[in-house]
Nucleic acid binder design. Structure first.
Lengths: 196, 196
DNA sequence: GTTCCCATGTAACCCGTTACATGATTTT
DNA sequence: AAAATCATGTAACGGGTTACATGGGAAC
């Protein structure tokens, strides 16, 4: 049993739902797994090649006239065995959080207060958009047999994003207090901002 | 101005605090930035080479007798300019969340309830450990001039992790109800757990 | 009737990870 | 005295991202 990256098993899992082409896999992944495990199309194609070589999936060419020819893949017996083996194995890689915004904020003492506020505002907008996207998708998850777990997982995403929004409000208050108390632009003065 | 990855600017930012060797940078990053932007030592050394070629940092060799010789780097004028330029630029890459646990949970209908509970228990343990680590570190952040922002950023990490712990409790309840109602192991039987 | 989007994929790059190296100092 | 740790780094691998290709339909 070769050591495979998580994305391989994610694809095996998706193919356990139904047989699909690489393009369809990418589309489905983008609406489900992407919220916690994004995969680019290129990666999917490469992984499918490898999984086929390993015998975990079997592909067959399909001719199409209007659209480009495609290759659809189905999960094989060994593929399903590898999938459930991976699923049952209790360990997992610790979650990775990479947040460029926080890196900037970490060095934000080199910025002016107005710039920090602009950064925070951008962050809030991005997180709010992300949350809205999640909330909009949560209703459509029932189309997938994973529905029950899908709801649960969407809850994970929503809880963390709401926590971030709460943090942003707290951070804005803290920075506002600082600006009012010290060396900064006073808060809520309608005229004096450095930004247009 | 070449396009550089976030890690480059993270290093410039650390070098804006004080001059350091690669090893010291790695040690400092591991106690601060690593919570939201981990960097391996190898990456740091490679980035330092590049930053030196770009003229953003200047390195000088330091002989040592007990310890191996080292090379310490200081931020140059152009380096500082690149840093503040990057900081002030309002955009940032959207945060990346990669959570292998959620991938497994997404396909967890292929598992038995006890296995799902074991997965959840592992997750809770990992998150709780992570949170404890963060809480232990939050007091020591004042050693760095970023102190004020450091507290804020630690709050970000703590809020999200607490939200996850709340989600885990919710998930365990939901799965417990399901197990009680249907095809599964009944919840809160004092003897039958798979974990000690 | 150009311009944009759909559906399908290949090729190249590079950041981040893992493995390797080394001599002194401390611990068991 | 063997083993682990510290303090420094180099080299190789590979997963994930970005760029490239293409031909038919839809939109404007």
């Amino acid at each position: 049993m070769a050591v495979l990256p998580t994305s391989s098993f994610a694809l095996l899992g998706l193919l356990s739902i139904r047989t699909m082409s690489g393009y369809e896999l990418a589309a489905l992944a983008d609406k489900s797994l992407a919220y916690f495990w994004p995969m680019h199309r290129s990666l999917i194609y490469r992984e499918l090649h490898r999984l086929e070589q390993l015998g975990y999936v079997a592909g067959s060419d399909v001719r199409q006239q209007r659209l480009p020819d495609k290759r659809i893949y189905r999960l094989t017996g060994p593929g399903r065995a590898a999938l459930v083996d991976w699923l049952a194995q209790p360990g997992f890689r610790p979650p990775q959080y990479r947040n460029e915004f926080l890196v900037k904020l970490f060095f934000a003492h080199q910025l002016q207060p107005a710039q920090v506020h602009a950064l925070l505002a951008d962050y809030r907008e991005a997180v709010a958009l992300d949350l809205a996207d999640l909330e909009a998708t949560v209703g459509k998850l029932d189309a997938i047999p994973q529905g029950r777990f899908g709801q649960l997982i969407a809850g994970h995403g929503m809880r963390t994003r709401r926590a971030i929004l709460e943090w942003i409000a707290e951070a804005e208050q803290a920075l506002g207090r600082d600006a009012a108390a010290g060396r900064g632009i006073p808060p809520s003065t309608p005229s004096g901002g450095a930004r247009p």
